[in-house]
Simulated assay, not measured.
Amino acid sequence: MRSKVWLIGGTSDSVAIAKILAGNNIPLVISVTTPSARSLYDRGLQIVTGCMNLARMQSFCQQEKFTAVIDASHPYAVEVSQQAIAITTKLNIAYLRYERSNYQGNNSTIANSLITELDSFETLLAGNYLQEETVLLTIGCKTLPQFQSWQDRATLYARVLPKIESITIAQSAGFKSDRTIAIRPPLTPDLEKALWQQWNISLVITKASGKAGGEDIKRQVALDLNIPLIIIARPQITYPQKTTNLSGILDFVKFRALIL
């Protein structure tokens, strides 16, 4: 029996993975959470849209008879990865996590003085990092509600995807229209720099999203403008198997095809 692969997608990384698997004629089903994410993929691919809880994941795996799961979800989609690990372990399905490489960059004295890495949003919000600062949050929309209590202690701006649900979440968290910008990354260095200057930003908060998420550009703009940048580390998850190389994915799937 040939491997049938479930690709947990929705990221730019998963689009590249889908091209590799489809190009090698490997049976593939892709899952994404939103219609806008669905539009990222080539036509003709089998794509399932919508969020899945643990029970739905299990029935999905059993129905499709997957022999391998490739988890290319966002680095901060902790619940998705944890549920996928639990289901694949229970059903004895091979699991591989594709994790985009961490940024390897400037270790200069200036960079070290401007760039702070914290282990979590909880650590950030428990401290006084934001106090009386003009802050640009480039962290996605889901975490914005945690910053609502800071709206009267700092000037907060949010950058979100140009989707109704993202803008709605931002508004509910206290971000008015003049402090919200909806734009789809990646941004060029010049545009990134212009946005920081337009709002007189004194502090930027982002995630450790790697080069694919524009982390390298934000680091460079922080140095160019002498603006502090706080980077929130990726959640720590123990994966059964993980790779940071696209070539490792094809090797993994072909190995599964040989032994099944």
Rank of each mutant, 00 (worst) to 15 (best):
2 R>V: 15
4 K>T: 13
10 G>H: 04
11 T>F: 01
15 V>G: 04
19 K>P: 00
21 L>V: 08
22 A>T: 06
29 V>R: 02
29 V>D: 05
31 S>C: 06
34 T>K: 05
36 S>H: 11
38 R>K: 15
38 R>G: 15
40 L>K: 13
41 Y>C: 07
41 Y>M: 13
43 R>Y: 14
46 Q>K: 09
49 T>Y: 12
51 C>R: 14
62 Q>T: 09
64 E>T: 11
68 A>T: 08
74 H>C: 00
74 H>A: 07
77 A>D: 14
84 A>M: 07
86 A>E: 05
86 A>M: 00
87 I>Y: 10
94 A>D: 12
95 Y>Q: 03
96 L>M: 14
104 Q>G: 11
106 N>V: 00
109 T>V: 10
111 A>T: 06
112 N>A: 06
131 Q>I: 15
131 Q>W: 11
137 L>K: 10
137 L>T: 10
141 C>A: 15
141 C>T: 14
145 P>D: 09
161 L>H: 08
170 A>P: 05
176 K>V: 11
177 S>M: 07
191 L>Y: 14
192 E>M: 06
196 W>Q: 03
209 S>D: 07
216 D>F: 03
218 K>L: 12
220 Q>T: 07
220 Q>L: 00
221 V>G: 01
222 A>V: 00
225 L>I: 07
230 I>Y: 02
230 I>P: 00
232 I>T: 04
234 R>M: 12
237 I>M: 01
240 P>N: 14
245 N>L: 11
248 G>L: 02
249 I>H: 01
254 K>G: 10
260 L>Y: 14
260 L>Q: 12
